[in-house]
Every structure is written in structure tokens, then in C-alpha cells.
């Protein structure tokens, strides 16, 4: 157990050390959400008064969803970070060592998780200037949910990167899945605006629950069915996807 923790720490530290030398990427990942905050959120002003809009202020509605959105996009692109490591044989070098496969997997996944948490905190701080006033406990839980989403999506992204080993392929596979999931999760506009059929489809999208839960949590409403469902869903998904990544790590032909 001790060896397992040390190994995970060594790999995580190595990945973070490289990241700290090049912190540019943390900020690149913030560009998109900030642009949405500045250039999209103002548009919502006009629809808050529309019948069926769930919140009184735009920031209460949009910022929690924006945090989930950042988690969705940024962690699902984390696979790009390992493409060159696969290419130059570094991953293979790790795989020949006696290090536990779970440590290898967690080293990479936790790096993405840490980056994402830093980004989420920065988004929250910026949002405070746009009238966002979340509940503190709710926010802590929201970050926990973001952590689970990050584990799930970065595991998937890494696994696909290991399997396709090609940037173009990885981008198209990711877009193919993430874009519809994003549009069907009610981040941009309330799902109540959508036709019944789309609402129906959205009900089988786990991110719909995550987005709804994120709004409850930032309002401080913790004891909600949606919140519980979102956590259960993403605990299961993160375990399954981690297991997939371990299997890929064990078997890929790099």
C-alpha cells in the first residue's frame, strides 16, 4: 500500500513538474470559459424573464453549468498530453517498470484532475465579479463532483489516446461524443426550453444530472435527489472508466 502511494506520487509529481515548467496550458484551458462568461452570459439577460427560466439571475444559472462545461471539455482533451509520450516511448518505459498499473493510471488522471480543480477555482473567482454568489459548502461538493467528472473523462480520453495514438483521430472521437453530451445537458439554455423529445434524450445523459446538481449545489441545496443521482452516477462512471484505462495501460501496443 505504501509502495502504491509512493509510486502514484512519483508519477504525479513528474507530470506536475513538467506542467509547472509550462503553466501556459492551465491558462489556455481557461480561455474558453472566460470567453463564455464575457460574451455569452450577457445574452442570457434577455431570457431570464422568459416563462420557465429556472433562476432569477443569469450567473446563478450559468456559472455552475460553465464549471461543468469546463470539466467536460478540458478533461476530455487530456489525452493529447500523452500522445507525444506514447510516440517517444516514455509510456513504454514506465510500463516495463514494476510500478503498479493503478499507480501509472492514477498518476496521469490525478494530474488532469488537479489542473481542472485549479481552473474551476479561477473561474469561480472571476465569476464573483459577475454577481455569482455561491454557497460555500455547496461549492465544495460541486468541486467534488467536478473531480469525479474529471476522473471519468480524462480516463476515457487517455484510453482513446492509447488506442488511436493519433491527434486527429482523438479529436474527432472526442468531439463526436462530447459535443452532443454538452448540448443535451442544458448548460447553455434550460432544458425546459427544448422540445419534449430532446428533453427525453437528455434524461439519459449523465451530464444533465451533473449540470442540474451543480445549480442546486451552488445555491446551497444539497439534499436533492438530483444531487444524489449525479454523485452515484459519476462515482460508478469514474470507477468503470478507470478500470478501462488500467486495462488499456496493461495491453496497448504502443
Amino acid at each position: 500500500m505504501k509502495k502504491f502511494l509512493i509510486d502514484t506520487y512519483i508519477i504525479l509529481k513528474e507530470e506536475l513538474r513538467i506542467l509547472i515548467r509550462n503553466p501556459f496550458w492551465v491558462f489556455i484551458g481557461l480561455f474558453e470559459p472566460v470567453v463564455y462568461l464575457l460574451l455569452f452570459m450577457p445574452f442570457l439577460k434577455g431570457v431570464t424573464s422568459a416563462p420557465g427560466f429556472p433562476a432569477e439571475s443569469t450567473s446563478r444559472f450559468f456559472v455552475p453549468g460553465l464549471i461543468v462545461m469546463t470539466a467536460m471539455f478540458n478533461s476530455s482533451y487530456s489525452g493529447f498530453g500523452v500522445l507525444d509520450l506514447l510516440e517517444n516511448g516514455f509510456i513504454e518505459r514506465l510500463r516495463v517498470t514494476p510500478v503498479n498499473r493503478l499507480s501509472l493510471v492514477l498518476g496521469f488522471v490525478l494530474q488532469s484532475v488537479i489542473v481542472l480543480l485549479i481552473q474551476s477555482i479561477i473561474i469561480c473567482i472571476i465569476s464573483l465579479f459577475f454577481g455569482y454568489s455561491p454557497s460555500f459548502t455547496g461549492l465544495v461538493l460541486l468541486f467534488l463532483l467536478v473531480l469525479l467528472i474529471a476522473i471519468t473523462l480524462s480516463s476515457i480520453s487517455y484510453s482513446i489516446a492509447f488506442l488511436v495514438k493519433d491527434g486527429g483521430m482523438l479529436a474527432s472521437v472526442i468531439n463526436f461524443f462530447v459535443l452532443p453530451l454538452f448540448l443535451l445537458s442544458g448548460i447553455m439554455l434550460p432544458l425546459s426550453f427544448a422540445p419534449k423529445i430532446i428533453q427525453g434524450i437528455a434524461m439519459v445523459n449523465p451530464f444533465t444530472y451533473a449540470v442540474n446538481a451543480s445549480r442546486f449545489l451552488s445555491d446551497g441545496l444539497i439534499a436533492q435527489n438530483t444531487v444524489v443521482i449525479a454523485f452515484i452516477l459519476f462515482i460508478i462512471l469514474s470507477i468503470l472508466t478507470l478500470q478501462w484505462f488500467i486495462r488499456v495501460m496493461k495491453e496497448t501496443v504502443a
Binding site: 513538467i18 509550462n22 509520450l85 510516440e87 517517444n88 516514455f90 509510456i91 513504454e92 518505459r93 514506465l94
Partner: peptide, 22 residues
Amino acid sequence: SQKGGLELRSTGRENLILQARL
């Protein structure tokens, strides 16, 4: 391996230390 597998953004020494730690 054929490709070697050095982490190119780190120094040679850092690569060796990482390997030893593993």
C-alpha cells in the same frame, strides 16, 4: 526500446532519477 523513451522536456539526470525512483 527502439525509441528510447526519455521524457524530452526533462534533463538527462532527471530522467535517470525518475527511473531509479520507479
